[in-house]
């Protein structure tokens, strides 16, 4: 450790750090702070209040946002669940099947959505759905979300899998467990932290996706991000800030949970 560079001594370290932090977080801070503004203005401070939070749930736009939030939630839960199942199967195959033809190709394909520009995926999805005559609606959003959630679910699960030696499954089978029992009773419980972590990550990625959703959603169907965008086009009102702050809170909670669960698994492993 002693040999590591002390970055703090680099010239300009402090200035660059502060600049980065400001650029990254000042907008979030402004939105969060102004969501508690009593005034209808988005720039003038009119005292602290929860008016806009109340407005989100009871105001004129409340039904629209509630419906959008419900859509977002249902899609995120379904897409994350399906993606997690597929990602778990893929992770088991990639880490346990040894070398097989097309393994690298498989890995690339699983992670492709991370590398392809999102707008390309969005256009391609839309073209694909209309080509096969799939009516756009909730279902198209769900399918598209499931696809781009897979790599996000896959990464933590695969990382977890790599830290589980295959001796455990061998021991299970040595003790008269069929391969499926060995998976269900031994491997899956050991993988759980990775699987949960992957699910939460996929959930949050689905929850706040705008671009792909906007392309493939059917007429009249909104998710929370598209509903917010629709609202903002008619001028930013403080209730948008309140909704955004709520979403930020949900994101932070889920990402933290995902990280904590992942780390919990690591600690357990090190103790053994």
């Amino acid at each position: 450790m002693a040999a590591k560079l002390d970055l703090r001594r680099f010239p300009g370290f402090l200035a660059i750090t502060i600049l980065c932090l400001v650029v990254l977080y000042a907008p979030l801070a402004v939105v969060a702070v102004y969501s508690f503004n009593a005034s209808t203005s988005i720039t003038n401070w009119g005292g602290t209040s929860l008016t806009w939070y109340v407005d989100v749930f009871t105001g004129p736009e409340a039904p629209k946002f509630q419906k959008a939030a419900l859509n977002s939630f249902v899609i995120a839960v379904c897409a994350a669940s399906i993606a997690t199942i597929i990602a778990t199967a893929a992770a088991v195959a990639m880490t346990r099947a040894g070398r097989f033809r097309g393994k690298t190709l498989g890995f690339a394909l699983i992670n492709l959505p991370l590398m392809v520009p999102e707008v390309v995926t969005a256009v391609a999805s839309l073209v694909f759905f209309s080509a096969i005559g799939f009516t756009t609606g909730l279902m198209t959003i769900l399918v598209a979300h499931t696809v781009f959630c897979i790599p996000f679910a896959y990464l933590p699960i695969a990382a977890r899998m790599q830290s589980i030696p295959d001796q455990y499954e061998q021991a299970a089978m040595d003790l008269y467990a069929t391969p499926s029992e060995a998976f269900r009773l031994v491997l899956l419980p050991l993988m759980t932290p990775g699987v949960l972590s992957g699910f939460l990550l996929a959930f949050i990625i689905s929850l706040d996706d705008f671009l792909i959703t906007n392309f493939v959603k059917g007429a009249g169907i909104e998710t929370l991000p598209t509903a917010i965008f629709g609202s903002v086009k008619q001028g930013i009102k403080p209730n948008i800030m309140a909704i955004s702050t709520l979403m930020l809170g949900v994101s932070v909670v889920f990402v933290s949970l995902s990280w904590l669960i992942g780390r919990m698994g690591q600690d357990k492993k090190q103790a053994s």
Binding site: P165, Q167, Q170, A171, A172, L175, Y176, T178, V186, S272
Partner: peptide
């Protein structure tokens, strides 16, 4: 799983 033999593994492989 169909062989009536059991193994003590090098790192034990106890289910944690």
């Amino acid at each position: 799983h169909k062989r009536p033999v059991n193994t003590v593994f090098q790192q034990y492989a106890l289910f944690p």
